[in-house]
Design a protein around this nucleic acid. Structure first.
Length: 560
RNA sequence: UGGGCCGUCGCCAAGCGGUAAGGCACCGGAUUUUGAUUCCGGCAUUCCCAGGUUCAAAUCCUGGCGGCCCAGCCA
């Protein structure tokens, strides 16, 4: 990044931060990423992570905390904590020792609640959940005061302490802020601060049976951590008055500024943790890290790199405008990255046997070919060649359509990194008429050289049958058929039945047998692939197709 | 029709009173032993609409229209 880029804020939040630093409102910036451990992180969280950790990185002495918003033990699991920490680190952000839990502050938060009660700003309400809802009013009608609203400070304190002591069952009492039941902002109609939940908590065990609500907890946690800018998504905009109200009543170390930005939507996928969980539980996918999932762990297993995801977050920007980003933008970030770093290899997904009749049956060669044509520094690899090779079925046509530059009967094509061959005979299954084999000849003078007196435009990939190893390849496609799943029906109704195609044993060049889980490759002319980190065995890699190459032939063909 | 927010190219998105950046997508064309990559070129007389202020408006004012969010003891 150049100095001018560093100095120039790229979005309205960075502009606010820069201004606050400039004016001396803050000496340094402190942000936080506050997930609830109730599911795996997804690409939408990556946007928030890149924003919060990014701002900290870009400013001198800036820091960003990882804080688990763990105020609801009925929905949270330690497994999620592990995955979230791993995903943040994998994305390339370091929270060092700054891993906190809202539950770290439960005692302080409780003390603040008693302060509110003492000040007459909070009361214990003994209405049932249904009654509270009824008293709340609607969007257009004001709410009504709870009959418990004017309990004495002494009674409130006594009741609240007994709530903590476990004297009451779930749902019998709540602690509420005493604000304004007629507020046009429903969040200000005496919001609930504490509820009774007799459930053990993953961090605090059985120490508590009352748990603070998000609105009450989050602002205090921010203040206790000295957060300067509390960045969250747009749906919390209506909560900001409450965020400020709570901190205004209390003597906290500071009063962070909440700023909201729009969350990420991506076409052909979903971002709701509830829905993602549904896919996992219903076995529609193999898990949170299924390579079709928009989760960080799913993208990682699919073959996305941290760099590509960070670049994506950079390109989409930060605004308050509603958005639904095209998948092609994400895919392009990936291609840009993998184009540079992925070594090349060859495999055939839909094999057609080619016999090169003028190549001696007993002969074979080990060709030395570059790992990356545009990056010689990436070295070379050995590639076996012999009389019989597999080529892609789709790379042959008996009668070539217009602009077809692959192999046709009577025509020539180059075998990538090897010789030019000519096809003179097609062998078919007499019963079905399906093409089963091609008889060809090769031009021995075309290794690393163009043929004399003619041009061969087409180049196709291939694998020597004698040298091939066979491994499973998984071809992934979008998880949903609709750009906005669940928009006007059950989201699962638009699941793509062909989002995964498994090819159990594709012939591929032998060098691939040694690939390690997580390794990236470009299978030439097919796409980028990644060695699956879960289902591969030593010497037996499973290849996940990360993304196809751009395919301008497919466009031409579609038009014809 | 209570409150909050948003509306610049198909999709993101700069712009903050001085005469519409950039990326993705798309369309040409060049190079190419990946129909990939790379490279050149094209792609908003117009900024949701209508008035108004101004020498000058996407930017300011007024009024419309369209969209999103909020009635969990979820976050």
């Amino acid at each position: 990044m150049t100095k001018s880029e560093e100095a120039k804020p790229t979005d309205f939040i960075r502009a606010i931060v820069a201004d606050d630093l400039q004016t001396g409102k803050h000496a340094r910036v402190v942000t936080r990423f506050p997930p609830e451990p109730n599911g795996y992180l997804h690409i939408g969280h990556a946007k928030s992570i890149c924003l919060n950790f990014g701002i900290a990185e870009e400013n001198p002495e800036g820091t960003c905390n990882l804080r688990f918003d763990d105020t609801n033990p009925t929905k949270e699991e330690p497994e999620y904590i592990q995955s979230i920490e791993g995903d943040v680190r994998w994305l390339g952000f370091d929270f060092e020792q700054r891993r906190y839990f809202a539950s770290d502050y439960f005692e302080q938060i409780y003390t603040y609640a008693e302060t509110l009660i003492l000040a007459g700003k909070a009361y214990v309400c003994s209405l049932s959940a249904d009654e509270i809802r009824a008293y709340r009013g609607t969007l257009t009608e004001p709410g009504r005061d709870s009959p418990y609203r004017n309990r004495s400070v002494e009674e409130n304190l006594d009741l609240f302490r007994r709530m903590r002591a476990g004297e009451f069952p779930d749902g019998t009492h709540v602690l509420r802020a005493r604000i304004d039941m007629t507020s046009p902002n429903i969040n200000m109609r005496d919001p609930i601060l504490y509820r009774i939940i007799h459930t053990s908590h993953h961090q605090t065990g059985n120490r508590w049976c009352i748990y603070p609500m998000y609105d009450y907890t989050h602002c205090i946690s921010d203040a206790l951590e000295g957060i300067t800018h509390s960045l969250c998504t747009l749906e919390f905009e209506d909560h900001r008055p409450l965020y400020d109200w709570v901190l205004d009543q209390l003597d906290t170390p500071c009063h962070p500024r909440q700023i909201e930005f729009s969350r990420l939507s991506l076409e052909y996928t979903i971002m709701s943790k509830r829905w993602l969980n549904d896919l996992v539980v219903s076995r529609a996918v193999s898990g949170w890290d299924d390579p079709r999932m928009p989760t960080i762990s799913g993208l990682r297993r699919r073959g996305y790199t941290p760099e590509s995801i960070r670049e994506f977050c950079h390109r989409i920007g930060i605004t308050k405008a509603p958005n639904r980003v095209e998948m092609s933008l994400l895919e392009n970030c990936l291609r840009d990255d993998l184009e540079e770093r992925a070594p090349r290899a060859m495999a055939v997904l839909d094999p057609l046997r080619v016999v090169i009749e003028n190549y001696p049956a007993e002969q074979e060669e080990m060709l030395t070919v570059p790992c990356h044509a545009n990056h010689p520094e990436m070295g070379t690899r050995a590639l076996g060649f012999s009389r019989e090779v597999w080529i892609e079925h789709d790379d042959f046509r008996e009668a070539a359509p217009a602009k077809f530059k692959r192999l046709a009967l009577g025509g020539e094509v180059r075998l990538r990194n090897a010789y030019v061959i000519r096809c003179h005979q097609v062998i078919k299954d007499p019963a079905t008429g399906a093409i089963t084999e091609l008889r060809c000849t090769y031009d021995p003078n075309t290794l690393n050289a163009n043929p004399e007196g003619r041009k061969v435009k087409g180049v196709i990939h291939w694998v020597s049958i004698r040298h091939a190893v066979h491994n499973e390849v998984r071809l992934y496609d979008r998880l949903f058929l609709k750009a906005n799943p669940g928009e006007d029906d059950d989201f699962k109704a638009s699941l793509n039945p062909d989002s995964l195609r498994t090819l159990p044993a594709c012939p591929m060049e032998a060098s691939l047998a040694n690939a390690e889980p997580g390794d990236h490759f470009q299978l030439e002319r097919l796409g980028y692939f990644c060695i699956d980190s879960k289902d591969s065995a030593p010497g037996k890699p499973v290849l996940n197709r990360t993304v196809t190459l751009r395919d301008s032939w497919a466009k031409i063909e579609a038009k014809q």
